[in-house]
Simulated scan of single mutants.
Amino acid sequence: MKAFERNRSFTQLIEFEIEPHQQEALVSALSAQTERLAQGYDGFLSASVQASDDGRRVLNYLQWQSREAGEAAFERFESGEQDFWQLILTHQAKTVTFGSFQVLSSIARSQDNALHCNLL
């Protein structure tokens, strides 16, 4: 792997398909879990929990400083440290889709209202 590739941030997307009556509880559980991630895992950058308007999907977006940081955190989840699989069972997820991505470009608005684009 090239040096510049190792320095790119890394994003994990986890999409849950659920029954609408489970959405609020799953959002709450993922929000609490995400707060624990922010406090306890090296390399954590940002996260969000998003809910679809139809109530049938929840998206958990996690961004890390590196692929290694994100994969290390997920390995701890799989080993039961944060009981991720129990969360899936408790909220009766029909499907769970995992995606991993390297960030190649990003755009953000600064406090002075300017747009900043980072191409890596």
Rank of each mutant, 00 (worst) to 15 (best):
A3N: 11
R6S: 10
R6V: 07
R6F: 05
N7P: 00
N7L: 09
N7H: 07
R8A: 12
R8F: 05
S9P: 13
S9A: 07
F10D: 11
F10V: 07
T11L: 06
Q12N: 07
I14S: 02
E15M: 15
E17P: 02
I18R: 00
H21V: 06
Q22W: 03
Q23W: 06
Q23S: 05
V27A: 00
V27E: 09
S31R: 05
A32V: 02
A32E: 06
L37R: 09
A38D: 01
A38M: 12
Q39K: 02
Q39A: 02
G40I: 03
Y41K: 12
Y41V: 11
Y41R: 14
Y41G: 01
D42G: 10
F44D: 04
A47P: 03
S48M: 11
A51D: 08
S52R: 12
D53K: 09
D54K: 10
D54L: 10
G55C: 01
G55V: 08
R56W: 04
R56S: 11
R57H: 14
R57G: 01
R57E: 03
V58C: 05
L59P: 01
Y61E: 02
Q63A: 07
Q63R: 15
Q63E: 11
W64R: 05
R67A: 14
A69L: 06
A72I: 04
A72V: 02
A73P: 04
E75T: 01
E78M: 14
E78A: 12
E78Y: 06
S79C: 11
S79W: 02
S79A: 13
G80D: 06
E81I: 02
Q82S: 08
D83R: 08
F84A: 06
V96K: 10
V96N: 01
F98G: 07
F98V: 04
G99D: 03
G99V: 01
S100E: 13
Q102C: 12
L104M: 13
I107F: 07
I107Y: 11
A108R: 15
R109E: 13
R109Q: 15
D112G: 12
N113C: 09
N113Y: 11
A114E: 15
L115D: 11
H116V: 11
C117T: 15
